[in-house]
């Protein structure tokens, strides 16, 4: 067993673009944001120009509760680059607002992961030229 933590090595960091900049600014402010359609109300992630449900371009940025549940997971032992400490646990989280996000599980033993586990976002200061704060998720409840 090993305690899962945010990666602190020289990992590839996001290079925010004009569409995703509000998302990464939210992370800097400690808020997980997603896009919601002003026409039909559907949530969208990853940051997009079109609503995933109705193709409207009328999207607004909304603060998420930051909570959700694990939809799927894997535990990686062969790191993608040597900068990553293993094991690490990629997860897909279904957020309470109904959108999906890819992240890593932290704050628990690697063997504790399970589909349906309730999780909550936390932010880790990864730095880099764009001052990135990466969202990770830890068990909640």
């Amino acid at each position: 067993m090993s305690l899962l933590s945010p990666q602190v090595g020289d990992i590839p960091l996001p290079d925010p673009g004009p569409i995703s900049a509000p998302y990464w600014q939210g992370c800097r402010e400690g808020v997980l944001r997603f896009q919601r359609c002003l026409d039909c109300g559907a949530p969208t992630h990853t940051p997009a120009l079109l609503c995933a449900a109705c193709a409207s371009m009328n999207l607004e940025w909304v603060d998420s509760s930051g909570r959700g549940e694990i939809y799927s997971w894997t535990r990686v032992w062969r790191p993608v680059t040597p900068a990553f400490v293993t094991p690490y646990v990629p997860i897909i989280v279904t957020m309470d607002e109904g959108w999906s996000i890819l992240s890593n599980l932290v704050g628990c033993e690697d063997v504790a992961v399970a589909i349906g586990q309730l999780v909550e976002v936390e932010f880790h200061h990864s730095g880099g030229p764009d001052d990135i704060w990466l969202p990770y998720f830890h068990p909640k409840g």
Binding site: P14, S72, P79, V80, N104
Partner: peptide, 25 residues
């Protein structure tokens, strides 16, 4: 196996992990 992308690369994703998430479900 490891295309760069701002929403996956920082989480250590590569093809085996992508397909594993499908298999686990």
């Amino acid at each position: 196996t490891r295309p760069t992308n701002e929403f996956v690369a920082a989480y250590g994703m590569f093809t085996a992990a992508e397909f594993a998430l499908m298999a686990r479900r």
